[in-house]
Design a binder for these strands. Structure first.
Lengths: 186, 186
DNA sequence: GTTATTTGTACGTTATATCGTCCTAAATAA
DNA sequence: TTATTTAGGACGATATAACGTACAAATAAC
């Protein structure tokens, strides 16, 4: 996922050029210094909410138009580029492959659990569901006071808005894919 | 119009309380310091775009949900509270009564022009239209190389995406109401 | 009632967003 | 060409966003 301020940068510049405005002109229209507009466009600055508002209002464009990412056809995410999150002294590792996005409303993780590794999660937001598939090793998962043991190829889906925990009770590395779905509010 | 960071503040706090989360919890979910979350909620801080993104993503709420202003039934704007914009050495004064909003897509001004006062405006964004009504005095307006003289009670509408200018050629103060409409992009 | 734990705020420090001025290169005019 | 404007970026100063720690009040545990 491209950094949000770079998306903003590109959108702002595109709008400015489409309207054939100079930095100076945009500066006047928005009440934001020319320098700042320039820095934002170059992705050197992550503007403040009030600045964002001034720009949107000054340019008469929607807030959304400035932060919208035109979905590219294809996006490749290499494991080596994903910032890994560690729990349980590094025995439980989370790789966020695809972060949450408000349109799709789910996120996708890969998780590795070393022998004996474990994680207890409190419930997520109400309505949340998890979809897990095991790709290697064995997974013991406890939710609603039920224990389930899954082996490679097995899957489970459950309401994740309550406490639950994952454990590798086997004797090899466990790998699994996890998709978390957050239904729309209201 | 309430300041944007106060709207954000209220929305954030409302969401947090609805989910029954502590500042600490929100901090963890979003990767933003507890202190910062607190300051934002109290309206003491105007968060950075990256911080806004972290909050939206961490809370799994839309960007829009955070900046949405539930339109109140009624809003009173007193002239004395409007920051006046002066041109032509103070002889041309602009009062922004209602600023641009992306849903309604227009803004409403009141303008006062002293005797002899004048303003030349370059064209606004393409498609823009102006709706003017004179409430006192006399207005001379030039657009598309045409001159129009309006007296109290008269109105004019014209495409404002080209240069135009206003002038008080009479001998009393001119007052007028102006609505500028910016059609949706595309 | 006392002790812990949790929750929100105050404070001091650092990072950085924002502004104004100056500078360089390109575009336009003379 | 030379002069003049314009457009974008560099630099230094200031305001403030963001962080970590410490504190006070409230809540929970005993």
């Amino acid at each position: 996922m491209e950094e949000i301020h770079l998306i903003f940068a590109r959108n702002l510049k595109a709008i400015r050029e489409k309207e054939k405005l100079s930095l100076e002109k945009v500066s006047q229209l928005c009440g934001v210094s020319k320098t700042m507009i320039g820095q934002i466009e170059r992705g050197e600055s992550s503007p403040t909410l009030t600045t964002i508002w001034k720009i949107a209002t000054g340019l008469k464009v929607s807030f959304t138009a400035l932060i919208h990412q035109p979905q590219s056809e294809t996006e490749v995410v290499l494991k080596k580029d994903i910032p890994v999150l560690s729990e349980d002294n590094g025995k439980y590792r989370v790789y966020p492959n695809f972060p949450f996005q408000e349109d799709s409303r789910f996120e996708i993780y890969t998780i590795e659990i070393d022998q004996g590794g474990q994680l207890s999660a409190e419930g997520h937001k109400e309505g949340t569901e998890e979809f897990i598939t095991v790709f290697a090793g064995e997974l013991m998962i406890c939710v609603n006071d039920h224990n389930y043991t899954l082996k490679s190829g097995d899957s489970i889906r459950f309401k994740a808005d309550r406490p639950h925990d994952y454990r590798n009770a086997g004797d090899t590395l466990t790998k699994l894919g996890m998709t978390i779905y957050y239904p729309n509010e209201r």
